[in-house]
């Protein structure tokens, strides 16, 4: 069998192994972050809205 081909396959194995390791390492990190996102979402007990209009000078005679 071609030895170069075997070397390539082993290198691919190493790369896949490292990738797998990185994914597994992140599983519990993801869980921690998810739980933290649930518990640390800030409350929003106060909200504001605006109400407005503009009055122009009246052209009619009024009693005021």
């Amino acid at each position: 069998m071609n030895e170069k081909l075997i070397v390539v396959l082993l290198l691919v194995t190493i790369v896949l192994s490292v990738t797998s390791l990185a994914i597994v390492s992140n599983i519990t990190d993801f869980s921690d972050n998810f739980a933290r996102a649930l518990t640390q979402q800030p409350s929003q007990p106060t909200q504001s809205a605006s109400v407005g209009f503009t009055i122009e000078k009246s052209t009619a005679g009024g009693t005021g």
């Binding site: 109400v51 503009t54 009024g62």
Partner: peptide, 13 residues
Amino acid sequence: DALDWGTGSVNTD
């Protein structure tokens, strides 16, 4: 979340 009546004037009180 906002109210705006625009612009106008009073013709009768």
